[in-house]
Design a protein around this nucleic acid. Sequence first.
RNA 1: GCGAGAGUGGUGGAAUUGGUAUACACGCUAGUCUUAGGAACUAGUGCUUCGGCUUAAGGGUUCGAGUCCCUUCUCUCGCACCA
Length: 838
Amino acid sequence: MSKYPFNEIEKKWQKYWEKNKTFRTIEDESVPEEKRKYVLDMFPYPSGAGLHVGHPEGYTATDIYSRYLRMNGYNVLHPMGFDAFGLPAENYAIKTGTHPYTTTKKNMENFTRQLKSLGFSYDWDREIATCDPEYYHWTQWIFKKLFEKGLAYEASTPINWCPSCKTGLANEEVKEGHCERCGTKVEKKNIRQWILKITAYADRLLEDLDTLDWPESVKTMQRNWIGKSEGAAVFFKLENFDDTLEVYTTRCDTLFGATYMVIAPEHPLVSKLTTKEQKAAVEKYLEDTKHKSDLERTDLAKDKTGVFSGSYAINPVNGERIPIWIADYVLISYGTGAIMAVPAHDDRDWEFAKKFGLPIIEVLKSDVDVQTQAWTEDGIHVNSQWLDGLNKEDAINKMISWLEEHKCGHKAVNYKLRDWIFSRQRYWGEPLPLIHCPKCGTVAVPDEELPLTLPEVTKYEPSGTGESPLVNVPEWVNTKCPVCGADAKRETNTMPQWAGSCWYYLRYIDPKNKDRFIDPEKEKYWMPVDLYVGGTEHAVLHLLYSRFWHKVLYDLGLVSTKEPFQRLVNQGMITSFAYQKKNKSLVPVDKVSEISPGKFIETETGEEVTQVTAKMSKSLKNVINPDDFIRDYGADSVRMYEMFMGPLTESKPWATAGFMGVYRFLDRVWRIITEKNIEDKELDKELDKLMNKTIKKVSQDTETLNFNTAISQMMVFVNELNKLETVPKKTLEILALLMSPYTPHIAEEMWALLGHEPSISKEKWPTWDEKKCLDDEVEIVVQINGKLRSRIMMPHNAEKDAVLEAVRNDEKTKQWTEGKTIVKEIVVPNKLVNIVVK
RNA sequence: GCGAGAGUGGUGGAAUUGGUAUACACGCUAGUCUUAGGAACUAGUGCUUCGGCUUAAGGGUUCGAGUCCCUUCUCUCGCACCA
């Protein structure tokens, strides 16, 4: 009657693994190349809240896979570390004066304790933290490479500015006009920034997606983010000026329908084009737009606004005068910040034209009256002189040739991707290793002075004026130019949090190397990452940035692969149950009672509520803390339940009742091994078959990351073993081996109880005998006109004729076919017979 | 609006190339037992008017559709005036 002593067992084996360095990995050259695998988790930001249930989901998946691969003779690199620069620790420092490193260190210790309590088979000797000077030494060194290659430049451009975080943000960090981190409305601000030329890699970042084994959704998101579009640049001569106005268009074939032009309020030609008569109106409009947030400007529902500049451009194809308007529905950040408007065939232009009474000319044969609505479908060209009668493709080609011939345009490509705003006006990040010299300009800190460490400061608060707290440390800022020795100043901006995560997967390979960022031999040994598991939240941010850095390193000959992560799997989110009233508002879990199975009411009011799944949140009281479950039921239960819940990639709700099922399963296994008679005896045929089928199913499902079905097969096997009076030892040995990647602690204990030496993780994965998996007799389903009517037993692989013969003699079948004409008989070997009758 | 994905019992979810829908688990019902433990064991559990009917709804292809095709609805996620 011993209760499964998970607590004792888990502590014991965790200690054993740590002491014996069971999972230390070395670059063993005798292991052939195809037997080396790099299995990587997205490393966590060590927040004060500790691990949530989402972390162990992906981590358990990669741990199972790593353990499985090792048992199959692979050399597996499976490391863990911390993405340790970040705003929460810094904000906490501002509030309390505690150094961010102190907070971060404490949190990392807590995370490490939690990760170890889950029994993950990481090689802890390779642990890294991005805030460690030994680590960011090489982050700075890589930045220098980018700088030397001309991929980092300084510019003062309007950028996204978070007034709460008091720092600039990359485009990728702005979600629906708000700061991704704190939710504050983002403003535009003109400040000096370091920018990385990620756009120089746009095409390769796009093309190489095709070579990756990634979820289609993530690839699509990256493609959309890069946003390549092919079209034409068209130059419009200006009336009364020598300048030309360049626009970008994907539909240069509609040029005959261009009835006005629009330039963005920030366009450099605005003041030049504004006439005396229009000056007051234009200035007022510019003032109005300036005060609008990005969100207001880009709100689709809002009315179009704009103002006439007073000037005209000349349509190159027909010499018509076209009025130039200024309007904020044209964005300065895309294309040239100027468009030709074709109101007949574009909803936005149509809306604008209607509002301001501009002419609308149909140039594509439309099914509607373009005066009453825009026609945005394809159509044959009309009112377009020498394009009339042509389709879209031909017309575009003809127009581009015409434009090129007349030197007023050419084929052009555009991207939505912007260069990466890379500097942050904050303290807790890698200092940019740059020095501003009045004579030599901006020069890099020499290699031998790296790492350039963060100085101590007394105040962590950003200045808010666009400078980091580092400006307040004169002894750090004031330095000598490494080139000419003159008095110079250090760059005071720091790198964004993404910098450290751009290359951490490389440092794991050679984490202690003092001389270089990575040993090329070791890099070749492990790269690329064979499996990378993490959440979708990094679909464009981290995964785009690190691909970019990796490609730069590749071009410099510093890494051997074009892409860092060959295979990517996104784990689904673990949600929780919540309760919803009729008016769709959610009720906290502790305010709900279950009155009968599946029926819930709000305790206070008695109103019926329905069970729905929702994100875990403090206010709904439905947050699950993995620590509680590890303490009360053990890490093995937590690991196995998270894998049993459903497919890894799906989002699914935590159900504590379901968790208990897994705990009971492990308890049952424990009772079998400690209470039943175990004998070294032959297996009977049926049991042997089930065992072989189980090995097969668990092997295949583990290989393909279908952990939930692998576990259900183990349950089937255990249910069968549980029925036996005496259990053959062999079955339990196999069970322990199959369970060991999933629930390593109990498996180690079982292995020891069965009289074997530790560690089970060093054992060979069991194999199955395909012959033994086959049934001698199979059930053949008999369908009449596609409906299930009878079942018969037949030997495996019985001849078609024999099967039909047996079916014809089957009593039930006879009843259904009597007096009818058999039209057709379909036989699926070992499966079914379908008889079509009339 | 555009793009991607998903809809299967009371619940989480299974179902090779189209071939027995609902494996496994939870929950529930009845019983046995006890060291009253979120116990264990046994039996049952999609609906049903017992003819049948069931994979969001409707249509199609097929001997046969959860799976393929079309239409519609719902939900989730991403992007969003991108010219």
